[in-house]
């Protein structure tokens, strides 16, 4: 059993996004593995192991498409337990769903995995297009938004449960196939492979990279290639942004107190001092995720708290 898992790096959803020149300012941004992709890695590992033992029943190959320094996020997937990785280099700005789907398709042709496992979408672009495009180009069966996966004992098919309006739809797809996963795939008993005891309960959420995993990951193969190596001529985006597509931030009306004792100059100084903490980029001192409630975050990123426990002050 060979599983190809795609991962993308995304700006840390817990960090504040800055806007500069009508675009997201990604300088000094901390990047993480797209949470849904992390769930896909976890699901792939559960499918290819006998829980409680170190026995591997198959191979998990991580495929990243993105800039060179994305190796850090790829290594973190290897540290979780994936066996090897491939990085196809490309600029984040150039990569749209279509381009990524072409790359994944090309890698599939070289690797011929039994299953392509993907996050249902990334939390930056939120397009939810690549798994469907890949399945289309490869003419493979697809199961999207899987919240549980059950690998048949003969490893010839996969039973996927999909959350749909009003209930759950169960779909059996013959392998090879493309599947994309939703967050409930990392609940304790969402993935079965007919080898691990059916009653086994995993800790909720994607597994932590163990320290031994981190040390081993340094020695695992990570192949870096260009799109040209796959026979793809260019990675220029097919769709160009049109007028009105710029990132913008509305500035609230100035407070009437700003002309008071703590005047405008002070407010300006305060705004500048905000940048101070930005001096410590990446994983550094002052970037601990704010223990905000999912409600305050006000968007789907709240879902990310699954398995990572409830944060409190």
């Amino acid at each position: 059993m060979k599983i190809l898992v795609t991962v993308k790096r995304v700006p840390d959803p817990e960090q504040k996004v800055k806007i500069k020149d009508n675009a997201l300012d990604l300088s000094g941004m901390n990047f993480v593995v797209n949470p849904f992709d992390e769930y896909a890695v976890e699901a792939a590992l559960r499918l290819t192991e006998k829980a409680g033992t170190t026995e591997r029943l198959g191979e998990v190959v991580v495929l990243g498409v993105g800039p060179k320094d994305m190796t850090q996020q790829i290594r973190s997937c290897l540290a979780m337990g994936a066996d090897r990785a491939i990085l196809i280099e490309g600029n984040d700005d150039d990569l749209d769903s279509e381009q990524v789907a072409r790359v994944v398709t090309a890698v599939y042709e070289q690797e011929k995995p039994d299953l392509v496992l993907m996050g249902k979408q990334t939390v930056d672009g939120d397009n939810n297009q690549v798994p469907q495009l890949v399945a289309g180009y490869l003419k493979l069966p697809q199961a999207t938004f899987a919240c549980s996966l059950d690998l048949a004992a003969d490893q010839k098919s996969l039973l996927a449960a999909r959350e749909i309006d009003g209930g759950t739809e169960n779909k059996r797809v013959p392998l090879p196939a493309v599947a994309s996963v939703d967050l409930r795939i990392v609940l304790p008993q969402s993935v079965k492979n007919n080898v691990t005891d059916a009653s086994h309960a995993y800790p909720e959420g994607p597994r932590y990279a163990s320290l031994k995993g981190i040390m081993k990951a340094k020695r695992k193969p990570l192949e870096q290639k260009s799109a040209a190596d796959l026979g793809i001529k260019d990675l220029a985006p097919r769709v160009q942004p049109g007028p009105g597509d710029e990132a913008r931030r509305a500035t609230p009306a100035p407070s009437r107190y700003q002309s008071g004792v703590c005047g405008r100059a002070n407010a300006e100084a305060h705004r500048r001092s905000e940048g101070l903490l930005g001096l410590t980029p990446n994983v550094n001192a002052f970037t601990v995720p704010a223990p905000r409630s999912a409600h305050e975050r006000g968007d789907k990123h709240g879902q990310r708290s699954i398995g990572r426990g409830a944060q409190r002050r």
Binding site: Y208, I214, V283, V288, P291, S305, G307, G309, A310, Q311
Partner: peptide, 18 residues
């Protein structure tokens, strides 16, 4: 070192904090 920091921070912010 950075990977160690990340994994311990994840563990701390979710498991220890709770």
């Amino acid at each position: 070192h950075q990977a160690v920091r990340e994994t311990v921070r994840q563990f701390a912010t979710s498991e220890l904090e709770a």
